[in-house]
Design a protein around this nucleic acid. Structure first.
Lengths: 212, 212
DNA sequence: ACTTATTGATTGAATAACCATTCAATAGGC
DNA sequence: GCCTATTGAATGGTTATTCAATCAATAAGT
C-alpha cells in the first residue's frame, strides 16, 4: 500500500466484517431507540455505511434483526459455556462460573440488556426470536440441573429437585436483568449476582442442615 | 329507547367508555403484533371505531400507549393491594396473597404478559414507561419488605434482610413472567407461583431451623 | 510494470407503501 | 338549534426494498 493511501481505510471489506459492523450498529440503535425506533437508515448511518449496503448484506431488515439476536445469544453462550467445560473445576465452581458469566460486564451491560429486552418484547409474536433464545436457555438450564444434582450428590443426598431449582435460577437471571434495566441506579451487577448466589446458598444450606 | 332502536348500540358513548375501548383494543393489538407492529389504524379497527375517533380521544399515539400502560399497572395494583389492606389477615397470609395476585389469571394472562414485556422492551429509552412501572413496583416491594420483617419478628428474630428478600422476590416475579411468556407449554402459572412460594419457604425455613 | 477485463462491493435515488396527524363535513343527542 | 361526537379523506413525512450506475480489487494478458 502506497504512503498516500496509508491513512485511508479500504473502501471494501470482507462480508464478515461488514455484517459485524451492521450487527453492532443494530445493537447500538436498538439500545438507543428500541426495535420500533430502529430504521435501516439509522443502522447504516451508525455503521458509517450506505443503506444499499445494508440491503446487500442482509436480505431484509427482519433478517438483520434475527442475526443480531443470534449474535447476542452466541456471545452469551460462549461465555458461560467456556468454564463449564473445564475438567479442573468442581461442580460447585462450575455453577458459580455460570452465574458469574450471567452478570459479566460484557454480557450484562445496560446496552445489551436493553437489546435483550427489546427482543423479549417482540417474542410473543415472533417465534424466531423465541427459538433463538430458548435454544441456549435450555442448554444452560440442563447443564445447571446436572451441576446442582452433582453438588447435592456430593453432599450425600439425592432428593433435591435439581430441575426445579435450575428453572428457578433461570427466572432469577431474567428477573435480575430486568431490574438492572429498570433501576440502574438502585440495582447493580454485583447485587444481582449476590442475590442469585444467596439463593443457591439457601438451597444448599437447607440440604446441609437436613443432614446434621 | 324506542323498540326499533333496541337492538342497536348507540353511536356515541361517554369518553370513559371510548377511552377504555381504545385501551383494550391497544392491548389486543400489542399482544398480537408488538408495539412496533401496532398502528392507530389497527387499534381503531380492533375497537370497531374510526381512526379519527382515536385521535379525538387521545392526543397522540404516544399518549394512548402511555395510558394503556397506566391502565395495566392500575389493574395490577388494585389486585395485589386489595388483600394487603385486610386487617383480618396475618402478615404471612398477606404476603401470600400478593404472590397469588401476581399470578392471577386476569393479570398474568399470556396477552397481558406480552403487553407488559412489549413495554419493558421500550423501557430503556422511554422514561415515561419506566416511571409508570416503577411506581407500583416500589410500593409493592416496600410492602413486601414490611410483611417479611413482620413474619420474621413473629418467628422471634430480627436479623433477616427483609429488603433484600423483597427485592429478590420482585426479580422472581418478573423472571417467572418472562418464562411464562417464552415457554407457555412448559411453564404454567401454578408452577410459577409454586416457585416463588418455595423460595419463601426456604427463606423462612432457614430462619426456623436457626432457632432450633 | 502497465493495461484491460471481470466480478463483486458500494452507493443513493427511485419507488410504492405505510403511518400519524389534521381537519372539514356530517351525525347524534339533548 | 347548538354543541359534542364521529368519520374518513387528505396531507406530509417516513420507511423498507429495489435497482442502475459507479467504484474497487483482482486476475489475466501484453
Amino acid at each position: 500500500m502506497s504512503p498516500t493511501k496509508s491513512s485511508k481505510k479500504p473502501r471494501t471489506a470482507p462480508p464478515e466484517v461488514r455484517r459485524n459492523q451492521l450487527i453492532n450498529a443494530t445493537i447500538t440503535c436498538i439500545a438507543n431507540k428500541g426495535i420500533s425506533g430502529t430504521t435501516l437508515s439509522a443502522i447504516a448511518k451508525e455503521a458509517g455505511l450506505s443503506l444499499g449496503l445494508a440491503n446487500f448484506h442482509f436480505k431484509s431488515k427482519d433478517a438483520l434483526l434475527s442475526e443480531t439476536l443470534k449474535h447476542l445469544a452466541a456471545e452469551h453462550r460462549d461465555l458461560w459455556q467456556r468454564d463449564a467445560k473445564r475438567e479442573d473445576l468442581s461442580d460447585s465452581d462450575k455453577l458459580r462460573s455460570i452465574v458469574s458469566a450471567q452478570f459479566h460486564s460484557r454480557i450484562c451491560s445496560r446496552k445489551k440488556l436493553a437489546v435483550w429486552f427489546a427482543f423479549f418484547g417482540e417474542a410473543s409474536h415472533r417465534k424466531t426470536y423465541r427459538s433463538i433464545s430458548s435454544q441456549i436457555d435450555l442448554e444452560r438450564q440442563e447443564l445447571c440441573a446436572e451441576l446442582i444434582q452433582g453438588i447435592a450428590a456430593e453432599d450425600g443426598h439425592d432428593e433435591i429437585d435439581a430441575e426445579q431449582i435450575a428453572l428457578t435460577l433461570e427466572g432469577m437471571f431474567d428477573g435480575a436483568w430486568l431490574n438492572m434495566l429498570m433501576y440502574p441506579a438502585k440495582f447493580t451487577r454485583n447485587q444481582a449476582e449476590r442475590q442469585v448466589l444467596d439463593y443457591l446458598d439457601l438451597v444448599f444450606a437447607k440440604n446441609v442442615s437436613r443432614r446434621t
